[in-house]
Nucleic acid binder design. Structure first.
Lengths: 301, 301
DNA sequence: TTTGACTCTCACCTTAGGGGAGGTCACATA
DNA sequence: TATGTGACCTCCCCTAAGGTGAGAGTCAAA
């Protein structure tokens, strides 16, 4: 009994003992061996018995903690030999992602609870607005869902760098138009647009040859304000689209006349970030989701 | 095309169309059918084709949202016919549980990042204290891990009801002793104890015949302060135990002399809740994890 | 009637292990 | 030395919530 601890060279322990010390189950240890995440120090060729070394305990404990934090084993395997600071950074990153996802879920839960409780929440309520004729500088591209928001950030970076003139109010904010589906298989195209003063159109267009100059005619839009956080695969988009769809049906607007058909076509996502990015004076982040529509004959213009 | 919407009796749609409207994949819809969560309104006996009714859309959307919130399908199945208020309550409960788990993970992540970054965090640092002889009223029981904390709450309820006299300082707080393992297979026993003034011992013992009267001898304890939140299966317990174990090894205290061997035996979990519960005047919740030990011969007493 | 889109079932894959069957190994006791 | 007992081995099946693909049948429009 005292033999096990006595001499430090023979620090080998059986899988059961190692399991107790590391708080990892025997089953888990065998799995980690099989996957190459944590191989025993020695495997007896005759019996197949696994023997672990004391020096493997820190690794095992690290694995135990990372698993508690829902790190996948594949990631742990890659991380295990790395510098502690690298691991710390990855843990931070991972945890931030989890946090972001949780915030999105939180607003969804809040919405659901409100709905179920019969409270009329202001979330996902549809309103309409008249959009005047606007002169736009645009960048269109095909992107798949993963790169969607990256494209948005790229456009933001371009705007920041070019110092485009400020435009007042929300009509001056940047927005994106979905000219096609961006749901998994299909990839857009998606167009990011920034309104500019019409009088500067030609000058700015020649200064920014990579951006397309367009004039968008005046039109009406039905829109839904999104609760914070513009992330691509967020469930909020679905709820917002459903809200628009329901509103259209209730108003008697035919699908053909609303820019939701087919699917996402022509939908606009407006995004204001804080001051230095959009170059307008809306203080906080704001985003909405809008569908241009034609008034049905029954509605008075 | 207009036919589909025109007359309300024929509101049947194919699985693909229903998938589009509900934002549930065709695969998921077939699974929900198989599991009895959401059966199609009609299944063509000859072809096996599933046809859904428009009226099933609200249910389908509810399922979609609940799945986004990680509700298991089994729970959704039970919930689906219920009153909206009942569902709202369950969503709240579920979300609170998720929140609690996330908080525990958060402190774990924080600890890990500190450790990896080489910062000496004050978390899980071992200290020692001398505990004087104490007179205790105790309740011992075998519990499995799920009921562990429930047992603690029960003891709290008893204390609250009996109005036991206050005791000053941390030595007056309630604590539990693990007389055996509570890890999955084994179930304790676990004993909850409340120190009382020695002079009131006989009177209180006769007033509380369901509680055992014991006198605990003076001893030393090594202890680790836990960061908030006393939940049973929390990873914090493991870290705290590891810290105690490491400390003991570093101090040259033999395992036999520390109450960690075998396994959890004799470990104490001290818990102070806010004022009205424990009947002492520690303002905030506080908990620690302690192991009584004998000083090794080499250490001066 | 043909074509193309849609749908069906069936079977296998994913993550991170848990549970158990049947067999082997190591150690302690009679 | 025999034997019991517990620890350990491999192998197989199971979980939840679908995703992916094969091969076959069905629906609706041209």
């Amino acid at each position: 009994m005292a033999n096990e601890v006595e001499d430090s060279p023979s620090t080998e322990v059986s899988i059961g003992e190692f399991s107790r010390r590391s708080h990892l189950s025997v089953k888990a240890l065998r799995l980690y061996d099989e996957l190459g995440v944590l191989a025993p120090a020695r495997v007896d060729t005759a019996s197949g018995y696994r023997y672990y070394d004391q020096s493997q305990l820190p690794d095992a404990r690290l694995i135990a903690i990372l698993r508690q934090l829902d790190f996948p084993l594949a990631a742990i395997k890659e991380l295990l030999g790395s510098d502690p600071l690298v691991i710390a950074r990855r843990v931070k990153e991972h945890w931030r992602e989890v946090e972001v996802a949780r915030v999105a879920q939180n607003s969804l839960a809040e919405y659901l609870i409100n709905q179920l409780s019969g409270k009329e929440s202001a979330m996902y309520e549809v309103a309409t607005r008249e959009v005047p004729e606007r002169t736009l500088l645009c960048l269109k591209r095909n992107v798949d869902p993963e790169n969607l928001w990256a494209f948005g950030k790229e456009f933001i970076a371009i705007l920041r760098e070019r110092h485009l003139p400020k435009m007042p109010g929300r009509e001056g904010g940047m927005f994106s138009i979905y000219w096609g589906l961006v749901t998994g298989d299909s990839d857009g195209p998606v167009e990011w647009c920034k309104p500019i003063p019409p009088e500067d159109a030609e000058a700015l267009a020649s200064q920014n040859p990579d951006l397309a100059l367009r004039v968008e005619p005046a039109h009406s839009e039905a829109y839904v304000v999104l609760p914070s956080d513009p992330d691509s695969s967020s469930p909020q988009w679905q709820l917002a689209m459903d809200a628009l769809q329901n509103w259209a049906t209730a108003q008697g607007i035919d699908d053909d006349e609303l820019a939701i058909q087919p699917a996402d076509l022509g939908l606009r996502f407006t995004y204001f970030a804080a001051e230095p990015i959009t170059g307008n004076n809306v203080p906080d982040d704001y985003s909405d989701f809008a569908a241009p529509f034609a008034y049905p004959d029954s509605m008075s213009r």
